[in-house]
Write a protein that binds this DNA or RNA. Structure first.
Lengths: 186, 186
DNA sequence: GAAGTTAGTGATTGGCCACTAACTTCTTTG
DNA sequence: CAAAGAAGTTAGTGGCCAATCACTAACTTC
């Protein structure tokens, strides 16, 4: 396998492992094991652990953006909103790793910023703005509406992260029908 | 100092340290140093590191709930909403640790749930529901409105965590005047 | 077939970290 | 005042982990 292909599979494995343990709670060995490669070899493919985490973060944002873009293709306004919402809720219910990797990314960037490292933040903010813009125009181009839309997404993230079951009353406010079907549909 | 008082100061110190490094990125020694006590003594006051993190998480939720309750006292509807929003934005701008500790808590509970430990989740969900209910009635008792309100709060958390400056266009959607004053006022 | 590159491994190391055991010092009280 | 108990320390252990080093095996190029 070429180094480039290996790097690719390392990123996938890293997303999975970092999602669970976060930066500090994930050993490079666990990533290597998942890839099926020796631990030292990771440091041939990436300069250090941070670089692996950064690559995983970028990939996570890119994946979500592509999900948005695909879902919204050819749609506008209300329809576009429904489409993204459905695609996103499907994602986080079927692949909780994506959700958790997102949260891990947020805390990591907050920590980096607090520690005076603004490089990581720059990358993440750029990725987030791409995500934002991918949704913004199809949703109608009104900043207020896009904000509300993203806000709901963030609340979903947090509630899902805390493990509230979908029939819990905390979901009542935006998913009336979810409480009866047990599934998230907007 | 009595053990109870010490425990109290350990919780405060732990909130500060865990906010920066998260569970795995924070050593018990750094907490002990901040308290001004030897590291092994922490294990007299708490059975293990997890218990310290749990206590810090509970305190974080309690503090936020009390903030809400105080801000909202005697107010209803629109006024109540303004009051909580102002109090909360003041909190996360003046004390970023609170914000980060919250995120760390969410990540940790997600990891715990994924690992099959539901005890931590139970505590956090209970605390969150108290927070929810503290805001719910004063805001008018409409689940939809409370949901929207909390959703905005979560988006603020994430945007602030990522380090977006307040004059960035990403804030445009809900804080038109913040972009000119550089301060968050709803 | 020599020279060089690419993919990959095993062994190691220096440092950190949660947690324990055993000891000291101070305070309270019968 | 003696003894008990509470507050706190020093010293130490076993385990983990990022990163380095030296090496091999296969393939490519001239």
């Amino acid at each position: 396998m070429s180094a480039e292909e290996r790097r690719e599979s390392v990123i996938r494995a890293a997303m999975h492992e970092f999602a669970r343990g976060g930066y500090h709670g994930t050993s490079t060995e666990s990533i290597a094991k998942r890839v099926g490669v020796s631990q030292p070899y990771l440091f041939r493919l990436f300069p250090n652990k941070q670089a692996i985490f950064l690559a995983a973060s970028e990939r996570c944002l890119r994946d979500t953006r592509e999900l948005f873009a695909t879902a919204v293709e050819g749609l506008r306004g209300e329809e576009a909103q429904q489409a993204i919402a459905n695609a996103y809720t499907r994602l986080i219910t079927e692949d909780p790793d994506k959700l958790q990797m997102q949260l891990q990314m947020y805390v990591a960037v907050a920590a980096a910023e607090a520690a005076g490292d603004h490089e990581f933040g720059k990358v993440v903010r750029a990725g987030w703005m791409e995500l934002w813009d991918t949704a913004h125009l199809p949703l109608g181009g009104d900043p207020k509406e896009t904000t509300t839309f993203m806000a709901y997404g963030m609340l979903i993230n947090v509630l899902a992260a805390m493990g509230f079951p979908f029939d819990h009353r905390v979901w009542e406010g935006f998913y009336p029908q979810a409480r009866t079907t047990g599934r998230l549909e907007m």
